[in-house]
């Protein structure tokens, strides 16, 4: 059931929120920058609890970009060496940490498209990153010509690892990021579009939900103070979503997307929608601006 928990804040109009929001935006001039700056207004002085939430999430973020840089290395090495089998075997491990924190990567200009663009998302001559290599390995069955793409990918994930250390975050943005990760699941994982050559979409699916849970857990103490019932429901729904993935787990990974029936994806999709509807209430619940 959708229930809007937050009471309307009548003293703050959308205009005022907008002004605050614009002030809070990043500063890159790139046209893609705005796409993930989705949080609501920032409070001028974060409370100690808010600071703790952000610090908690920042640890998770940096841990994952570090892991991304580390796990991309052997993948890139295999691609550069032209070892298709080895590169394929290393691909998923590099994807997981990225999929956990992707909305933050989106805040840095064209870094996200450079790392993660799909074939139809950018002009052909600009296409690089994970999915360009994925296509070479799985469709073209070769790593030929991919060495420069792989080296650029390594440089890009290392740049991301450095840049996240300076990213300006607030608690509402962390909560919004949790929702964006579930939007990723609904928009491109459950449809099999993200990993359209390797079909490891369920690996990304789980990573997105893990990242969403980590962001939620960071802000959970703030939500507990406002609406403990909602907080409990969301926790239970996260468990439900993880449980629904279990039948598809095989070894370290999952069955391929192409092995799923429409009934399978439908079941998973409905679970995500159930969780996400509740999770989408959190940013407004924990927002303290104007109070």
């Amino acid at each position: 059931m959708h229930r809007n928990r937050v009471r309307p804040v009548l003293t703050i109009g959308v205009l005022a929120l907008l002004a605050l929001f614009v002030a809070a935006c990043g500063s890159s001039d790139d046209v893609t920058t705005d796409s993930t700056t989705t949080a609501a207004a920032k409070t001028e002085q974060p409370s100690p609890q808010e600071e703790a939430a952000v610090a908690d999430y920042r640890d998770y973020l940096e841990q994952n970009t570090g892991e991304l840089a580390a796990e991309t290395k052997p993948f890139v090495a295999a691609v550069v060496a032209g070892n298709v089998a080895q590169a394929k075997a290393r691909y998923a491990a590099a994807r997981i940490p990225y999929e956990r924190i992707e909305p933050v990567a989106g805040a840095f200009g064209d870094l996200d498209p450079r790392i993660d663009a799909r074939e139809d998302g950018v002009p052909a001559d600009e296409w690089g990153g994970f999915h360009r290599i994925e296509k070479a390995l799985w469709i073209e069955d070769t790593a030929k010509g991919m060495a420069p793409v792989a080296k650029q990918l390594q440089a890009d994930v290392e740049e991301l690892d450095q840049k996240v250390k300076t990213v300006d975050l607030d608690a509402v943005e962390v909560a919004t990021g949790a929702n964006e990760l579930l939007a990723e699941v609904s928009g491109s994982k459950i449809t099999g579009e993200e990993e359209r050559y390797s079909h490891i979409d369920l690996v990304d699916f789980e990573a997105n939900v893990e990242g969403s849970l980590a962001a939620f857990e960071a802000v959970k103490p703030l939500l507990d103070a406002k609406d403990a019932d909602l907080s409990g429901e969301i926790e239970a729904d996260f468990k439900m979503v993880f449980n629904s993935l279990e039948p598809y787990r095989r070894g370290n990974g999952f069955v391929l997307y192409t092995d799923l029936t429409k009934a399978d994806t439908r079941k998973l999709s409905i679970k995500i929608d159930t969780l996400a509807e509740k999770l989408s209430q959190v940013p407004a619940e924990i927002d303290n601006s104007g109070e």
Binding site: V14, L18, T38, A40, T176, L182, S186, A276, S280
Partner: peptide
């Protein structure tokens, strides 16, 4: 639409 409906008013307007 399911994803859109979960976006905040501010996100929708921006």
């Amino acid at each position: 639409l399911e994803v859109w409906d979960r976006a905040s008013l501010l996100d929708q307007e921006r």
